[in-house]
């Protein structure tokens, strides 16, 4: 059965009468570009998430899991970076969705697109990781992000369990060769008994050992902090705002000479910021004097 010849002319007449226009090419191109761009951005975010995962897992203290947990599986479950895995999964899905919705995306099967998305995110993640981007992201989040220990790096919480023999914090003072002081992630002060020659004041450390008193910890193994190291440097920021800043930290500056030394270096390292604070807060210099900051440092700051 065929259609009569008037049918074709009738359609052309409708197109002309109703003035039906061709949709412009740019609209289709724009849609394509949006799909490809969102897919590419999702792929990059997935790669970034994977680079952070690599960084977090690389420094996950695999060598001491036997000392700090019952089994490798318990250790993995407790320390897996779930947030970043979730981000990776979400952006792999977004990449998949966008590949599927490209002009020829339907030609590829679901498993193939999923594998392409995963492999591409991982390859990018490895490249980003080699470029140090995973570390940089963790450093920035550690320094600035709210809820860092609850969301981005739960290893800090895992390592802040002294009753389980794990402690992480910032070394604020070396008392003797066998004793030093540490501030944990909740700003509690700990007396650490162990080889103080292995630590450096102003640097965070992870400790494996045993809690021997209310705020006393007997250390067996001292390890450097990889992911989260900048989280322990947040104290630096707290010095600057306000007339006295965080009173707890001000007290520590007075109490620990090494800590004060670090603080003084920080002041000189942030001259521009100090200048801004001095303009806004005339009491700032007086407060520095109250903290017994070296007069030559105050002079240098004022001279700037």
């Amino acid at each position: 059965m065929n259609i009569n010849n008037g049918f074709s002319k009738n359609i052309l007449n409708i197109i002309k009468k109703k003035d039906i226009k061709l949709k412009p090419r740019w609209q289709f191109l724009l849609k394509d570009y949006v799909i490809w761009s969102v897919g590419a951005i999702a792929l990059i975010i997935g790669g970034l998430a994977f680079s952070v995962i690599i960084y977090l897992l690389r420094y996950d203290d695999w060598s001491v899991y036997g000392q700090i947990t019952g089994s490798i599986w318990e250790f993995i479950l407790l320390t897996l970076p779930y947030f970043w895995l979730l981000i990776l999964a979400v952006f792999i899905l977004v990449t998949y969705y966008n590949i599927k919705h490209t002009k020829k995306g339907y030609r590829y099967s679901l498993p193939m697109i999923v594998i392409i998305s995963i492999v591409a995110s991982m390859v990018l993640g490895v490249l980003f990781s080699h470029a140090g981007i995973g570390r940089a992201i963790d450093d920035v989040l550690g320094e600035k992000a709210p809820l860092y220990t609850k969301i981005f790096n739960r290893q800090i919480i895992f390592w802040t369990q002294p009753e389980e023999g794990r402690l992480v914090g910032l070394v604020v003072s070396r008392v003797s060769d066998a004793e030093f002081m540490l501030l944990d992630s909740k700003q509690n002060e700990w007396r650490i008994l162990g080889d103080a020659n292995l630590i450096e004041v102003g640097k965070p450390v992870k400790l494996v050992g045993e809690q021997s008193g209310e705020n006393e910890f007997h250390v067996e193994k001292i390890m450097p902090v990889g992911p989260g190291r900048k989280f322990f440097m947040r104290h630096k920021d707290k010095h600057f705002p306000g007339p006295l800043g965080d009173p707890k930290i001000m007290e520590r500056i007075k109490k620990y000479p090494e800590f004060k030394e670090i603080f003084e270096q920080d002041l000189l390292g942030h001259k521009e910021r100090i200048k801004e604070i001095m303009e806004k807060d005339p009491e700032f210099i007086k407060n520095l004097e109250k903290l017994n900051i070296a007069p030559e440092i105050i002079e240098q700051l004022q001279a700037e």
Binding site: F7, I11, I14, I15, I20, L22
Partner: peptide, 14 residues
């Protein structure tokens, strides 16, 4: 079919 051809015409740039 009429709709098919009108859609085809409208989207010809695609």
């Amino acid at each position: 079919l009429q709709e098919v051809f009108i859609k085809a015409y409208t989207n010809l740039n695609d």
